[in-house]
Design a protein around this nucleic acid. Structure first.
Length: 352
DNA sequence: TAAGCGTGGAA
DNA sequence: TTTCCAAGCTT
């Protein structure tokens, strides 16, 4: 049974307060019957997975400027796409983005499937993204459930079950609110509400369009919802990164394997990170310690990365990796932890 | 199914 | 400084 009240209040609020975003079509275009570009919706939704709007904005502009459509992206060089994604994190998204673009071109004639069910079969598109594309780009009455929606539902209906066990219950509640008209706007309205008013800490209940029907607000439990199971502590791992620069300015880097941490990205040679740092120079050289250490935190562990730098001869023949010519090397094309290593180690190589 | 997978901003 | 956490997906 669908509840008109909260849905209507939410859409009214959205129409009055929706923030402009590069991947959104404005209200004028919507009224003219112009639908958002599925490519732009897909690209933005993948970038937005576990990532803030502020972090995505510039990446979205660079990607669409360089690859304006799914065909262009499908034809792109893998390394170029990974370098353009560098710094945004969760690099499996970039690998799956390319896979998905190539499947859309090879198996769907370069057009995205228009149903949630079909979208779910594409690489990198899960329940959330499939619903988002189906609702926003194609008008399907699909229910979008992300962290914002979970939080809004948990508070609106005062759900005490902790996440992630509460997910099915919260999904069902969200389905009950999804309207047949403008399901895409509704989805974005709930997410905008969660991002700006129904925030994780100190929600702005006083200006919330759903303050009247909100059960948690009435009970005073809004700040405690949704409940979550405690998280595991992060261990600390250690490693060493070797920054080797040849006499002509080329840098010794290696492409990491597609699976695992920073998969498919360029990085500095070094042993696998573990309980203790292991020496593993890619070739014999006068490796020096610049006396600085990279500290970086990943999703599930802290990393302390020692550095070694060396000037390498033109005939250097490393066992691993390859030299990237100075003209092609861009620190911005490295994942952040590797760029930090460059920022700290590179000054030690510049002649005084 | 629970774990693996990035980063940067906010408090 | 540390912790939390953001428009999740894959295996």
């Amino acid at each position: 049974m669908r509840d008109e009240g909260p849905s209507r209040a939410l859409l009214d609020w959205y129409d009055a307060h929706a923030r402009a975003m590069p991947w959104r079509t404005g209200p004028a275009a919507r009224k003219a019957g112009i639908r958002p570009d599925p490519y732009a919706v897909w690209l933005s939704e993948v970038m937005l997975q576990q990532t803030t709007v502020a972090a995505v904005r510039d990446y979205f502009h660079r990607f669409t400027a360089r690859w304006p459509g799914v065909g262009a992206l499908a034809a792109a060089n893998d390394g170029d796409v990974m370098a353009e994604w560098a710094g945004l994190g969760y690099y499996a998204r970039a690998r799956n983005l390319l896979k998905c673009a190539r499947v859309v071109v090879a198996e769907h004639g370069g057009r995205f499937p228009e149903t949630r069910a079909a979208l779910l079969n594409l690489p990198g598109i899960g329940p959330y993204t499939a619903s988002a594309i189906a609702a926003i780009a194609f008008g399907e009455q699909a229910t979008v459930v992300d962290g914002n929606v979970e939080r809004v539902m948990a508070r609106l209906f005062a759900v005490e079950t902790p996440l992630p066990a509460a997910k099915p219950e919260l999904t069902a509640l969200a389905e009950g609110l999804t309207p047949p008209d403008r399901p895409g706007c509704h989805a974005q309205a709930v997410m905008d509400l969660g991002a700006t008013i129904c925030t994780p800490k100190s929600p702005a209940c006083g200006i919330c369009p759903l303050r009247a029907p909100c059960r948690a607000r009435a009970l005073g439990t809004q700040a405690d919802l949704p409940r979550k199971l405690p998280k595991k502590p992060k261990p600390t791992r250690h490693g060493i990164a070797y920054l080797g620069r040849r006499a002509d300015g080329a840098w010794l880097l290696e492409r990491r394997p597609d699976k695992g941490l920073l998969g498919g990205m360029l990085g500095w040679p070094g042993a696998e990170w573990g309980d203790a740092a292991q020496e593993a120079p890619p070739l014999a050289a006068n490796w020096r310690d610049p006396g600085a250490e990279v500290r970086h935190t990943f999703t599930h562990f802290h990393l302390r990365l020692a550095l070694r730098v060396a000037d390498l001869p033109m005939d250097a023949a490393p066992a691993r990796g390859r030299f990237i010519p100075a003209q092609e090397f861009r620190p911005s094309g490295l994942p952040t932890v590797m760029r930090k290593a460059f920022d700290l180690g590179q000054p030690a190589l510049v002649p005084a």
